[in-house]
């Protein structure tokens, strides 16, 4: 994995639940058929109420009409990101849409695990809320050797919590690669 991710930020509020990330009616698509899979990108974050979509102004769709991928590759949320259901389709949908990392003050357990074990997006926790200092559209750089996020527009840098005990799984790209690297599963 690269040590840095650069891209445009998409800012959301607290308690972004999995129904907002990918509404349940879309969970019928195959996750292995490449054509059907695109629908997860198309409907990613489609359940976020418009006024809360793309803060601080809102009403900034994550996916443009008839699009399948997003111009934003870093999500900046608040607390309890990914609460709700166990659907792995949530981090999958963000990945299919082109998201590389999520930055949030805290996560719900299953979304966090799914992101890490499935190798979909990297979930970074932050010591303080950052969704009130970044704006949707800001150019950002995430550096996960130094655990920082920099706003390339304002040149301000903020700390991220270390990935801690899941670092090795994130680095391996998911639980299966990790288990093969460590000899737990045959290669």
């Amino acid at each position: 994995m690269n040590n840095k991710i650069t891209g445009r930020a998409y800012v959301l509020g607290d308690n972004i639940d999995t129904d907002q990330i990918i509404p349940a009616e879309h969970l019928v698509y195959s996750t292995s058929d490449p054509e059907e899979l695109k629908n997860y990108g198309r409907f990613a974050l489609s359940g976020v109420p418009p006024v809360e979509a793309g803060l601080p102004e809102g009403k900034k769709p994550f996916i443009k009409e008839n699009g399948f991928t997003s111009e934003f590759s870093v999500i900046i949320g608040g607390s309890n990101f990914g609460c709700g259901s166990s659907r792995e389709h949530a981090p999958l949908a963000l990945m299919v849409a082109g998201v590389k990392a999520v930055i949030a003050e805290s996560y719900a357990r299953i979304f966090y695990r799914n992101s890490v074990d499935g190798g979909f997006v990297i979930p970074f926790e932050t010591p303080v809320k950052l969704n009130n200092v970044f704006k949707t559209g800001d150019e950002v750089e995430v550096d996960f050797e130094n655990n920082t996020i920099t706003n390339l527009n304002s040149k301000k840098t903020y700390s991220l919590n270390s990935l801690g005990s899941v670092y090795d799984i994130v680095k391996a790209g998911g639980i299966f690669s990790y288990a093969r690297n460590t000899g737990m599963l045959a290669r």
Partner: peptide, 19 residues
């Protein structure tokens, strides 16, 4: 509850990590 990747891991190994 777990996601699909963790469940697939359990299906093959009967094991899973947990904090």
């Amino acid at each position: 509850g777990v996601g699909n990747t963790d469940a697939a891991f359990i299906m093959g190994t009967g094991k899973i990590w947990e904090k």
